[in-house]
Amino acid sequence: MATILQVAEAFSAHRFSEVYPFLHPEVTWTLVGAARLEGREQVVQACETALGQLAQTTSQVLRFKTVANADAVVIDTVTRYVDKKWQSSFVSACDIFEFTQGHLTAITSYTQEVDSSILG
């Protein structure tokens, strides 16, 4: 059985199929400033849509930092995405994962496109 850290890392790395077995039926995913998804079906559908969009790009993870305790994991990432027209964008994201008895019950995601010059 995967640990909560492994589940959270798989989600933030867009390996969603590894996460599906751990989703609580009433999981919520808050995409701050954009949407709130409720229930396993909505979360899986959003993940599959994201995978379709990601298939049109290549990505390079520039930062992947994790903080965890017994029932929560926070992952801070910066990823460079390049589309088929060779246009690149940099996205900073912070995902907060909450678990209950090994099931992922809540996700809160903060994402922001950033200028590459601030990445140092």
Rank of each mutant, 00 (worst) to 15 (best):
E9Q: 15
T30V: 08
P25R: 04
I107P: 00
F11E: 12
I107M: 01
T79L: 08
A93G: 10
Q45S: 13
I118S: 11
R40K: 07
E9M: 11
V44S: 03
S109C: 06
L5C: 08
Q6H: 08
A10Y: 09
F99G: 00
P21T: 02
L51I: 14
E48A: 09
A70S: 14
V61M: 13
E18D: 13
R15I: 11
L104Y: 00
A2S: 15
R63D: 13
Q6P: 08
L119H: 08
P21W: 06
T100H: 08
Q42D: 03
T79I: 14
S59G: 12
V61E: 12
S59I: 10
V73L: 02
S109A: 09
V67R: 07
S92V: 14
L119K: 01
A50W: 14
T3D: 04
E38N: 03
G120V: 15
L51K: 14
V114A: 05
L37T: 00
S12M: 13
E9I: 06
V67D: 10
V73N: 01
S12D: 12
I96L: 05
T57L: 14
R80C: 09
R63G: 10
D71E: 07
T108H: 02
N69L: 08
H24S: 12
L54A: 05
Q101R: 07
Q42M: 04
E98Q: 07
Q6F: 07
A70D: 13
F11K: 09
L54P: 11
L119E: 04
T108N: 02
F11D: 12
L37W: 01
Q56A: 14
T108I: 03
V78S: 09
L54R: 11
A70K: 13
V27W: 00
I118C: 07
S92K: 15
P25K: 03
W86N: 15
W86D: 15
A72Q: 13
T57Q: 14
L5H: 11
T30W: 01
L31M: 04
A72M: 12
A68Q: 03
Q101F: 02
A8G: 09
D95G: 05
A8Q: 06
T30H: 12
E113K: 12
S59A: 13
H14K: 14
Q56H: 15
S88I: 10
V91Y: 04
A35W: 01
T105L: 00
R15N: 13
A35T: 02
L37R: 00
Q112H: 12
A70F: 08
Q45E: 14
R15L: 11
V32M: 05
Q60L: 14
A68C: 02
M1P: 12
